[in-house]
């Protein structure tokens, strides 16, 4: 436990908790687009910015990446914080003017948002790559790295079909609808890869991609034959 101050309230922060988590416990609204409580923090959207007092000087900090510490002083609602969030939101809006989640966020943070057709862009929040690595453990999604002497025009997420098991977690976690999952005819299509669905040995309903069941079998040692029954029939 660490005693700290957020917006004048003295609180007891949990060991290892982030400033974002502690602030939300106080029902302080902190906007985020790349944060998920079950994933490691990524610090990409720059919307959760707060001010932290460091050596007597207020400094901007990404609250999702800043661990709560004893004696820390935090402000979440100053002009500086608001302007900083608004700038980040306006830049996201500049890049993705048709993506609903970005438009809503920008409008909320005071950016002048114009009417536009709907589009579902990848905003590089990294929720899918982290889910694929940390939760699913297959690493089918990775950032394509740009940088020195690497000739990559635009940043994007790379998909490796050979390791994808079609679990659909990325589609579930994607905030913009960029990752699409389509189903039908005993098939599931995700990131343009077609998966054969397994049908339940009891009720016959298609319930999971065969590759996902094979993956579960490999990692748990349970034979695939024992995994061929859906959750409702088990």
């Amino acid at each position: 436990m660490a005693k700290m101050i957020i917006n004048g309230h003295e609180i007891e922060a949990k060991a290892g908790a982030t400033v974002l988590e502690e602030a939300r416990k106080l029902n302080i609204d902190i906007p985020t687009l790349c944060y998920h409580k079950d994933l490691s923090s990524f610090g990409a959207c720059r919307l959760c910015t707060v001010e932290v007092k460091i050596k007597g000087k207020w400094q901007l900090a990404a609250s999702c990446q800043t661990e709560a510490a004893a004696g820390m002083e935090v402000r979440t609602d100053t002009d500086n914080v608001r302007e900083s969030r608004k700038l980040a939101a306006s830049l996201l809006y500049f890049r993705y003017p048709q993506t609903a989640v970005v438009r809503d966020m920008a409008a909320k943070l005071g950016v002048d948002v114009q009417a536009a057709a709907d589009s579902r862009d990848c905003i590089l929040c990294g929720l899918c790559t982290r889910t694929c690595h940390e939760i699913v453990g297959v690493d089918a999604l990775k950032f394509k790295d740009r940088g020195l002497a690497r000739d990559v025009e635009e940043p994007k997420i790379e998909f490796t079909p050979s390791t994808c098991i079609g679990c659909g977690s990325c589609a579930f976690v994607c905030p913009t609808g960029f990752v699409r999952m389509e189903a039908g005819d005993g098939k599931r299509i995700i990131w343009d890869k077609v998966f054969k669905m397994a049908s339940c040995s009891a009720c016959g309903r298609y319930f999971a991609p065969v590759e996902q069941l094979e993956f579960i079998s490999r990692t748990t040692g349970v034979p695939v034959s024992q995994l061929m029954t859906c959750v409702s029939c088990r």
């Binding site: 610090g43 990409a44 959207c45 720059r46 700038l87 996201l92 950032f143 940043p155």
Partner: peptide, 9 residues
């Protein structure tokens, strides 16, 4: 060319 493009700003 050097910016990784991963953060919003």
């Amino acid at each position: 060319k050097l910016s990784c493009g991963e953060c919003s700003v």
